[in-house]
């Protein structure tokens, strides 16, 4: 059983939901990333989505886009991100790390090389925004050969046939994009999200995480009633953006505690 699966089953046994914060690696500076990861865990993260900075983050809203730009100023690329995960793993062997990013950095490294390096660094899952399920069979085989889960996005416009195609390739959990739009956009229609998650459940036993529009504790609480995990990204990154180097860890910790309380 993968680290991601065991976390979900343990939570399920306790009737709890996974809290999955997102931060961009190297934001605001690579020297903070590992301590931020530990702070997230300390304050209630069950697993962490770690963004790989990319020059052209098409699926991200302005908040996460700026985080990418800040990280790239310090030359934080995929190799550096893997180093940071390895450093985190030295003191935490339990919390799953999911890399979230775009195809081209992986293409540049080579799918096979990347999958092996990800395993070696202690990465548990990879979510690649712009790999459509029709085009990434080879990549998935490479990930699975290294015991790394392939996390896929499902959106409000994903049609039933495509949901089938995706659930057949996905491992670890499914990530449901709760709104039509980019990260950090708009407000959720909770009933609509709930209905869609329910319909996806008829096709798979994989846990379902929900993200893209979860911007506060109140929304997190509502989503936690029917999802297995809640991803909070833009709000987390915004807190980082608005903090000084001194208050960074404290502010992120506070936000995490708020969210934890809300969903438990």
């Amino acid at each position: 059983m993968s680290r991601i699966q065991s976390v979900f089953s343990a939570l399920r046994a306790n009737n709890k939901k996974a809290l999955i914060p997102y931060i961009t690696a190297g934001d605001p500076h690579p020297k903070h990333t590992v301590s931020l990861l530990h702070a997230l865990v300390k304050n209630g993260a069950d697993m962490i989505e770690l963004g790989v900075p990319f020059s052209d983050p098409m699926a991200d809203g302005p908040v996460i886009q700026r985080a990418s730009e800040r990280a790239l100023l310090h030359k934080v690329g995929l190799r550096k991100v893997l180093e940071l995960v390895k450093e985190f793993r030295a003191n935490d062997t339990k919390t799953p790390i999911i890399l979230m990013g775009y195809a081209n950095p992986i293409e540049a490294m080579g799918a096979g090389v990347f999958a092996a390096a990800a395993k070696d660094a202690g990465v548990d899952g990879v979510l690649t925004v712009d790999y459509p399920p029709e085009e990434c069979k080879e990549f998935n085989v490479a990930l699975q050969a290294n015991g790394v889960d392939s996390i896929f996005l499902l959106s409000p416009t994903t049609e039933p046939a495509r949901i089938d195609l995706i659930v057949n390739q996905a491992t670890g959990f499914l990530y449901y994009v709760s709104l039509k739009g980019v990260t950090g956009a708009g407000n959720l229609d909770i009933e609509e999200v709930k209905a869609k998650v329910k319909s996806i459940r008829q096709k798979t036993n994989l846990p379902i995480g929900v993200g893209f529009g979860v911007k506060d504790s109140a929304t997190a609480k509502l989503v936690a009633e029917f999802a297995d995990g809640i991803v909070v990204g833009s709000r987390m990154v915004q807190t980082i953006e608005q903090s000084s180097e001194e208050t960074l860890i404290e502010n992120v910790g506070k936000l995490m505690q708020e969210l934890r309380t809300a969903i438990d």
């Binding site: 020059s55 081209n104 950095p105």
Partner: peptide, 14 residues
Amino acid sequence: GNRTYLMQDSDGNI
């Protein structure tokens, strides 16, 4: 959304 010749650095950033 397409695979092609692409100006990029060694990290795959454009």
